[in-house]
Design a protein around this nucleic acid. Structure first.
Length: 291
DNA sequence: CCTTAATCCTGGAAGC
DNA sequence: TGCTTCCAGGATTAAG
């Protein structure tokens, strides 16, 4: 089973990028597949000539924020848009990865390596995505990213408050699982964590969103933060000893109590876990523990 | 409003 | 063993 980039994985990618590419400037960009750059894409020229100043994240989406090298020497000659830094938004989709290769580490791009940023320290950042569900969007400014793209997303799963989530859930008659998967409700949850979360909270995936009480929502948010935080920590540790298969699979199993365990005994009551489809997604749950 | 289905795509698993 | 088939998944779109 390969790593699925949901919020915790994306967060770890961001942490990695912060320590490797932030502060570096982009000397050259190789676009090996043009169609992986979606939407109107000419303006930022893929950040060539810019310095990467920071990495932002909302839900599962990553933003590489650039800054013109002469920005400091040339402040405020015209309107604010002139100095709003350009950025690139990256979604890893199902199989996307963003990997940094230091100067001395060789890197042989294969057919699935779509974009390579060459950095001034000799390092390279490579976007690879075999299945190509992921993609990349360029923006003139961070504010454009927020207005055009991130405004459609709900609050980040790590920071949303119980009352905000409850307000969103209250006026929907969709299944709770569908609502939680919808990035417009809150950003960051995917199929795996939604199943785990609902199991952890003892909530049936088909319960109506508006039937989830304030107290249950509180439990949901509390559990969600704990789950994501744990996964982030674990991701960090699995990255360190990536080659150690046993350590990695052990952590993986610990996190997944229901996902991928259809018909296996419920970790809480022992009854075989049920499997169904909700919003077109495989859904595993316990009929007894999630009434 | 809401759901379902189709679409995109490839690698891995299962079946024969 | 090698071939075929199926299926997973997120987001978007169209259709019911």
């Amino acid at each position: 089973m390969s790593i699925m980039p949901e919020l915790p994985e994306v967060q770890n990618v961001c942490l990695g990028l912060t320590t490797t590419v932030v502060g570096q400037s982009v000397t050259r960009v190789t676009v090996r597949r043009r169609d992986i750059v979606r939407g109107p894409s000419r303006p930022t020229n893929m950040l060539r000539g810019y310095t990467l100043t920071r990495i932002d994240r909302l839900g599962k989406q990553i933003a590489l924020v650039g800054q013109s090298p002469n920005h400091r020497n040339n402040p405020g000659t015209s309107g604010k848009t002139a100095h709003s830094p350009p950025c690139i938004c990256i979604h890893l989709g199902m199989t996307g990865s963003l990997r940094f290769y230091p100067k001395d580490k060789p890197h042989k791009p294969d057919i699935h390596t779509h974009i390579i940023w060459h950095l001034n320290n000799g390092g390279r950042l490579a976007f690879r995505d075999p299945r190509r569900f992921g993609g990349l969007w360029t923006f003139d400014s961070v504010s454009a990213l927020h207005e055009i793209r991130w405004s459609k997303l709900g609050e980040d799963a790590l920071t949303i408050t119980p009352s905000k989530l409850h307000a969103k859930l209250q006026h929907t008659r969709r299944a709770i699982k569908s609502a939680l998967l919808d990035q417009a409700t809150l950003a960051g949850l995917g199929n795996i964590y939604v199943d785990e979360l609902l199991f952890g909270c003892g909530i049936h995936p088909l319960r109506l969103g508006c039937d989830v009480s304030r107290q249950e929502t509180q439990r949901l948010v509390r559990q969600m933060r704990a789950l994501l935080a744990k996964a982030i920590r674990l991701g960090g540790s699995t990255l360190r000893d990536y080659v150690d298969t046993t350590g990695r699979s052990g952590g993986f199993q610990y996190l997944h109590q229901v996902y991928g365990r259809s018909a296996q005994p419920c970790p809480r009551c022992g009854q075989p876990l049920a499997c169904t489809t909700v919003s077109g997604r495989t859904t595993v749950y316990c009929e007894k523990c999630q009434p």
